[in-house]
Every structure is written in C-alpha cells, then in structure tokens.
C-alpha cells in the first residue's frame, strides 16, 4: 500500500518535470529532420555510359534505359542503393532527399537524359 503510494507520487513528480523540458516535436514542413551521410533517398544520375549494370543488379527491376532516357520507376524502387554501388563510373548517386510523395503518378517516373554519346555504339 505504502509502496504503491510512493510510486504514484514518483510518477506525479516525473510527469511534472516534463513540463520544463523542451518539446521533442519537429514541426515538419518548416523544419526537416536531418538524415545521415549515407542515407539513401531519391536517386540521381549524371554521366551514364549505358553499360547496363544497374539494370541487371536492380532487385526490383526499377531501372529502364530507352535510347537516351534513363528512367527510375519510383513505384518499384526499394532504395537498396545497389545501382549506385555497382555503377562503374559512379554516375548514379543516392541523394538525401526523402520527400517523394506526389499527387501525380507521372511524377513517380524519374527521367534523366543521357548526354553526349548519341552516335556511339555499345559493344
């Protein structure tokens, strides 16, 4: 009985102490939470040589290369980071951007243009 009462008083004190602590709330749209250095967010591509390694390595089949269009399908992407790891010229990078929600399905197809190698053959 006494022990229960003591614990009750203790819990009251603990709760009271929380009044003077700083709130842990992060007001999201105004302040964004910081992510780690190796965070894998929205993928980015520049300087592709069309070797096709990323297509083979992607476990979700999210990458497509059509002529000069390099397409990430964000509906399928699982952010494993394999493509950026295996890319021989380090053309693909995982950025720290994690705000990927949209109202439009077409925005989920990330399209990057492949530059400069239009007339070369791949063999």
């Amino acid at each position: 009985m006494l022990k229960e009462f003591y614990y009750m008083l203790l819990s009251f004190l603990t709760v009271f102490k929380h009044l003077f602590k700083r709130p842990v709330t992060l007001e999201y749209p105004e302040k964004k939470s910081e992510v780690g250095e190796r965070f894998r967010g929205k993928p980015y591509m520049k300087g592709c040589i069309k070797c096709g390694t990323c297509i083979k390595v992607c476990p979700a089949n999210a990458i497509k290369i059509e002529d000069n269009d390099f397409i990430f399908d964000m509906k399928k992407c699982i952010f494993c980071g394999n493509c950026s790891f295996y890319c021989p010229v380090k053309a693909i990078k995982m950025t720290q951007n994690y705000e990927l929600a949209t109202n439009d399905v077409n925005d989920l197809k990330l399209l990057y243009k492949i530059e400069g190698r239009e007339n070369e053959r791949l063999d």
Binding site: V15, H18, L19, K21, R22, P23, V24, T25, E27
Partner: peptide
C-alpha cells in the same frame, strides 16, 4: 497545451 507539455509535445500551435 498542458497535456502537450506534460508529454514533451507542443500542443496545438
């Protein structure tokens, strides 16, 4: 507001 502060939140703001 008080319930927010007691639980280390901000409450309505």
């Amino acid at each position: 507001k008080l319930l927010g502060w007691f639980t280390q939140r901000k409450g309505p703001n």
